[in-house]
Structures are given as C-alpha cells and as structure tokens.
C-alpha cells in the first residue's frame, strides 16, 4: 500500500465518511428504540395473523427481538444505500473516475505500480466500510442502552457481526473495484456494480418473503450476512469464507486485468 495515496484518499473522503457514519449511527440507534417501544405490539400483531409470517424474517431481521432489530438495521435499504456510498460509489469511481477525469495518469506517472495503486484503494475502501459499519453498530448499542434493553445484547458477538458485515460490503467493494479497473469510464463500472447489488438484494428479499424463491438466496451475497444468527451465538465460518472468497476473486481479477490494460490518453 502507498501511504501518500491513502492519506490523499482519506483527505478527500473524510467529510463524506463523517456524514455517512453519523447517518448510519442514527439509523442504528433508532431500531433498538423501535424494538423496545413497539416490539411487543408488533409481536402481538404477528401472532394474531394480521401480518404474514414472512414479515418476521425479512432479510433475516425483525422488530420482535433486539438481535432481530439490529439485523434488520443492517439489511434494511437505508443501511445498504448509506454503506454503498463507499462500497459501490467510492470503489467504482476509484480508478474509472480518475481515468475519466484524467487524474489517473498524473498519479501513475509517479513510481507507483498499478498493483500498489489498486491495493491502496481496496484498503481505503475496506477501511471506510469498517468505520461506517462500526458507526452503525455503535449506534445500535447506544440505542439499546438508551432504550434500556442493552442487557439483552451479547456484546461479545459484536466484533464477529462487524466482521461479517465488513466482509459483505467489502465483497461489493471488491466487485466495484474490479469493474473500476476494467473500464475507462465511470458509468459502466458503476452500472455493473449497482446492477449486481440490486439483483442480489432482490434475490435475498424475494427468497425471504416467498418460500418458493428460497433456493435463489444462496446466489445473493446478502444471504451470507447472518446478523441475527451471530448475535444469538451461532457462527457459520462458511458464510465468512464465501464473502472472503468473493473479495479474493475480485482482487485476483483486478490484479490480473489492471496491470495489463492499455491506458490510452483520456478523450
């Protein structure tokens, strides 16, 4: 990794990171409070049969337990959109955006190999995601404490949940960066990554709401975020391995393709 490039990236992204982290922390704070305030009523409503049973397991989360509410916070579109600012937006534009603006050649005319350039940006992406997810979980812990339900939370499981979440969004970042090094312009890189994230989210939600579509869920990376299971003490190394495998696959693609590409003059 290159320290100067990391510092430069941090400088350019720090305000965005602060805003996204604050928003995620606020979002994380709200869900335990909602659980504490309305969880019982939602439970009664579900038991009465007025709500379909599938709503209790939307994306692996719910509002009938603290673990479920934290899991829901992670898989909810609001959290995904906010985290995707870095996992998709930053990562997809990291190389293709610089290439399109013409600044890539200024940076690469320095003694910096393309491999180091890529690895530094992947490191920056993972760092931003790690901070954003930590803010979300910190918000959740604060919310649980504020609502007086922190006693229901197994704090020792939080680092693993953080790791699982970072690996999920890190996998998207790896896909985004792989797309970013493969194209000369930002729109195709962004389009490919956003398309992949949206399709996977649809597969996961569809599978969780419609039993006949359950077999589609393993094709979605969201399926390998087991927030509620982790918070209740169940660990699946396979899930972590799948996400790690996607990160490694994205890295491999980028490290093969990027150094071999011709970087013609920006048009």
């Amino acid at each position: 990794m290159n320290g100067a490039l990391l510092r430069h990236t941090w400088r350019l992204q720090r305000i965005r990171l602060a805003v996204v982290s604050a928003a995620l922390a606020t979002w994380g704070f709200l869900l335990p409070v909602i659980y504490a305030r309305f969880g019982v009523q939602f439970g009664v409503l579900l038991d009465s049969g007025m709500l379909p049973e599938q709503f209790a397991r939307f994306g692996g989360g719910d509002v009938f337990s603290l673990e479920g509410s934290i899991a829901l916070g992670l898989i909810h579109p609001i959290a995904i959109i906010l985290t995707s600012v870095f996992a998709v937006g930053f990562a997809a534009s990291a190389v293709a955006g610089e290439r399109q603006r013409g600044t890539l050649e200024v940076a690469l005319s320095r003694p910096l190999s393309r491999q180091v350039f890529y690895v530094s940006l992947l490191g920056a992406s993972l760092g931003f995601i790690a901070i954003a997810i930590a803010a979300l979980l910190a918000g959740s812990v604060s919310g649980a404490t504020f609502a007086g339900v922190a006693g229901e939370l197994a704090f020792a499981t939080l680092p693993l949940l953080w790791l699982n979440s970072v690996l999920l969004f890190g996998a998207f970042a790896s896909i985004a960066l792989a797309a970013s090094v493969s194209f000369d312009r930002l729109p195709p890189a962004m389009g490919c990554t956003l398309g992949a994230v949206i399709v996977m989210y649809v597969l996961e939600v569809l599978g969780s709401l419609w039993p006949s579509a359950e077999h589609l869920q393993p094709y979605s990376l969201f399926h390998y975020l087991r927030a509620k299971a982790i918070l209740t003490g169940s660990i699946s190394l396979f899930d972590l391995a799948v996400l790690l495998g996607v990160i490694v696959a994205g890295m491999s693609w980028a490290l093969v393709v990027f150094p071999r590409r011709d970087l013609a003059a920006p048009s």
Binding site: N2, G3, A4, L5, R7, H8, R11, L12, R101, G102, T103, E105, V106, A107, S109, R110, P111, L112, A265, P266
Partner: peptide, 23 residues
C-alpha cells in the same frame, strides 16, 4: 501530460505536496 487534469478540490500547495509525496 498534455492538457493536464488536476484535483480540483485541493489547493495548489496540497496538490503539489501530494504529487511530491507520491514521487
């Protein structure tokens, strides 16, 4: 480079510092 593109959100000094550090 011909028609050089620069990082618009940096000051001239920050830009030269960054590119100097990369060098």
């Amino acid at each position: 480079p011909s028609g050089i593109a620069l990082y618009d959100t940096l000051t001239g000094e920050q830009l030269l510092d960054y590119l100097g550090a990369l060098s």
